[in-house]
Amino acid sequence: MSGLVTGDAVVLGLQPARLPSRALALVIDLAVIWTVYLLLSIGLALATASLDEAAVMAVSIASFLLVLVGAPIAVETLSHGRSLGKLACGLRVVRDDGGPIRFRHALVRGAMGVVEVLFTFGVIACIASLVSERGRRIGDVFAGTLVVRERVPAARGPMASPPPPPWLVGRFSQLDLSGVPDDLWLAIRQYLTRMRQLDPAVSWSMAQRLAGDVAERTGTPAPEGVPPAAYLAAVVNERQARDARRAFTAATREAASSPAASGPTVAAPAAAPAATTVDHPDARSAAAAAGSTPLLAPAAPAPVHVPRTGTSGGFAPPA
């Protein structure tokens, strides 16, 4: 069995973990737990050296229950099924319906793990995992849990919604979809991507319910004779087409209003000093002889010296 199916015949994208990955995660967890337990035992032995034998035995039992039994239960409860070994191997403990585990699930798994794992060195757990179809040990069976893989190879892309029948494309262009909430759109897309994996009767009932919800939110009943799944696919296709048109229109307006729409922007060069018009009588006569306009002296590092005639500003008055 490659997937997890709920009681409503909905296939979840969860893959049960098999024995090799679970064994590796268990080895990592046991290595960490036994290391902590040995260090704690040495510390307690030094701290309780002056106590009597009964007190030392009580402290030893308490440390055993606290570290080897209580610590895994607390870690799985607080991390919602992820111990250190499972986190390293990409595994997680979930309920049979795919939900996160709670304290009672972790308690049952931890209590059964003392017998399955600690007392028998994991032999019973390995045998039960090999016999079980979904790789569950006895603690998982009693707790109603399952160890699944969180990291799966991304060989396939996200499943897209199936296209509607060609005769329904564009038929709902006048339908008001503004009242349909996002969670209903999400439910419709999830149904359309997984409807071929559902039982036919369950698929038909879910499609009818979702189509009724859409008709109630839009105020327009579904057309007679149109299958509910095809109606949902056509409505989703219409909304995607509208979103695409709005995105294209927005991009076009933004491109038209941007400065780059009128051509490449060329940086204006720094303003050069104004050219000096040499209006000296000699210069005008030379220009008239040449049949051109008065000479323009371009700016140069060295200023052009023109003979002064007694007027202010350094320019000769007109003749």
Rank of each mutant, 00 (worst) to 15 (best):
S2K: 09
T6A: 05
V10Y: 07
V11F: 09
V11P: 02
G13E: 12
G13I: 01
S21N: 07
R22S: 07
A23E: 08
V27I: 09
I28C: 03
D29W: 00
D29H: 01
L30W: 08
I33V: 08
I33C: 06
W34A: 07
V36M: 07
L39Y: 02
L39W: 06
I42T: 06
G43K: 03
L44A: 10
L46K: 07
E53D: 07
E53Y: 05
A55T: 05
V56R: 07
S60H: 03
L66I: 07
L68M: 11
V69H: 04
G70P: 04
G70I: 04
P72Q: 09
A74P: 03
V75Y: 07
E76R: 05
H80S: 06
H80K: 10
H80R: 15
G81I: 12
S83W: 02
L84S: 03
K86I: 11
K86F: 04
A88F: 05
A88I: 04
V94P: 01
R95D: 08
G98L: 06
P100Q: 06
F103R: 01
H105M: 05
L107R: 06
V108C: 03
V108M: 07
G110Y: 06
G113M: 02
G113W: 00
V115M: 02
L118G: 02
C126V: 14
L130S: 10
R134A: 11
G144C: 05
T145F: 00
T145W: 00
T145S: 10
V148D: 07
R149P: 01
R151I: 15
V152Y: 01
M159I: 14
M159Y: 10
M159Q: 15
P162R: 08
L168T: 02
V169T: 15
R171C: 00
V180Q: 10
L186Y: 04
L186R: 14
Q190T: 14
T193W: 12
M195P: 08
Q197I: 04
Q197W: 13
D199C: 04
R209C: 01
L210D: 00
A215R: 08
R217H: 12
G225W: 09
V226I: 14
V226C: 12
P228E: 02
A229G: 00
A233Q: 15
Q240T: 09
A241D: 05
R242W: 02
R242F: 00
A244G: 04
R245A: 06
A250Q: 03
A251Y: 02
R253K: 11
R253F: 05
E254I: 03
A255F: 03
A255T: 04
S257M: 08
S262M: 11
P264G: 05
A270M: 09
A275D: 12
T276F: 13
T277G: 12
T277K: 13
H280N: 09
P281F: 12
A286Y: 03
A289I: 13
G291W: 03
G291T: 12
L295V: 13
A297D: 10
A297T: 03
A299P: 11
P301R: 13
A302P: 00
H305L: 15
V306Y: 11
R308L: 15
T309F: 14
G310E: 15
P318R: 15
